[in-house]
Design a protein around this nucleic acid. Structure first.
Lengths: 217, 217
DNA sequence: CCTTTGCTGTGAAAAGTTTGACACCCGTCA
DNA sequence: TGACGGGTGTCAAACTTTTCACAGCAAAGG
């Protein structure tokens, strides 16, 4: 009922907030008033209702007894908290399979991440079309990033090149980096990094599969 | 010096083990004896040396004083622990941008994840080439999965279709699922799931950017 | 009006994770 | 050889995250 925390939100919580938002977005867009309880959210996402309530206590939004949370309101607050209602200007570096797939993916644009530049080192790839864009050479990136006011850089290059690319992005004024490469990237504190590695996720999965066998018998 | 834990490894640790492996793999393949200390690993990955030592205490591998860890040995043990030395038979469902990019990505094959089937619901996509493969219609998936002994299914379809696809995969005998879709997937305990959502990572990043500003001033 | 019921917000306990501290070990160099 | 320095493995403390338990509120139905 108070809900005036608004201090820093732990990142374990932030990660779940992104899922709550995805869940809230699955409800129709136009409809009138829908309500959802912490128990329902928990069930849909494989959590406990307690965790959900605790998490939501970090944002400035109250549920009401016997009804739960107003879906539309919840969604709006989550979008605000997560910056999903802003427009972010994004550049992708690395026009390999993954980079191209990301650049062409509409899901990001729908959520406010506008990809407006794609870069690669390989001359053979420069000039290729990516939706309405064309792949540019990496050497054009710094000017582009600072000129266009890019907020976020997505690093989709081989591990060995990742830190170099990141340094360029940072020097050009990017505020955050999504690192898809296998190597860890070091940044000054003012530049945020989130790492997302499919290979690591697959390895985690394969470990779990291997291990689950032993456990189940 | 004892190192006979071998009970269950917490998943926070497993996630880092995948990164240690990626790091160990950056060392040349052929060379003789290289050694690395917990401090070096920690520095490269942005952790503390204590965490690294604690994590490595979960696997059956000892460092030695004054030298650190033998890179080749460490790598071998990590590969074993994570199942990265096995060959996994993988099918991708969803031949959109992301699905196609994954199916064509060599990085996975190099690490033992052999993608041997790609499926989509959309008749227009069926028949397209993906490297040496061709996209097949989803209706062919169950027989293919059980016939070919697929271990892992990668779900790269829209959120609304994800659970249905997962259910099919599970019924056909898959042992693990990598879920790239925005919706949470429910599986029986014997089938492992790892979720990897680029959109959520981007949202986490945008939250951090938004918040960092406030903090820094 | 009062009672019941179902759900929230919250404080505190429990569980899990990270960090710190230190005994001990092994190469190196005098 | 002995002492040093730089590393490991491990125990315990500090911190974080999750779960539990419950007071209290809001709707619904007498």
């Amino acid at each position: 009922m108070k809900r005036t925390k608004s201090s820093v939100i732990p990142s374990s919580v932030v990660r779940r907030l992104t899922e709550y938002l995805a869940y809230a977005q699955t409800f129709g867009n136009e409809n009138g008033d829908q309500w959802v309880s912490s128990r329902e959210i928990a069930q849909a996402l494989g959590l406990t209702s307690s965790t959900v309530r605790q998490d939501l206590s970090h944002i400035d939004f109250c549920g009401i007894s016997k009804r739960g949370y107003h879906v539309k309101g919840l969604r709006a607050v989550l979008e605000d908290t997560l910056g999903a209602n802003s427009v972010w200007r994004v550049a992708v570096v690395g026009a390999g399979n993954l980079g191209m797939a990301i650049a062409q993916n509409d899901e990001f644009r729908e959520r406010g991440f506008h990809i407006i530049g794609v870069f690669d080192k390989d001359a053979a790839k420069v000039g290729r079309s990516v939706g309405p864009l064309k792949v540019q050479h990496v050497s054009a990136m710094p000017d582009f990033v600072s000129g266009e006011g890019i907020d976020i850089g997505i690093v989709a290059v081989p591990a060995a090149a990742a830190q170099g690319v990141a340094d360029l992005l940072i020097a050009s004024g990017v505020r955050g980096i999504l690192n898809l490469s296998l190597s860890h990237i070091i940044t000054p504190r003012r530049v945020q990094v989130v790492e997302a590695r499919l290979t690591c996720s697959l390895l985690e999965l394969s470990h779990r599969i291997k291990y689950a066998r032993k456990e189940n018998k």
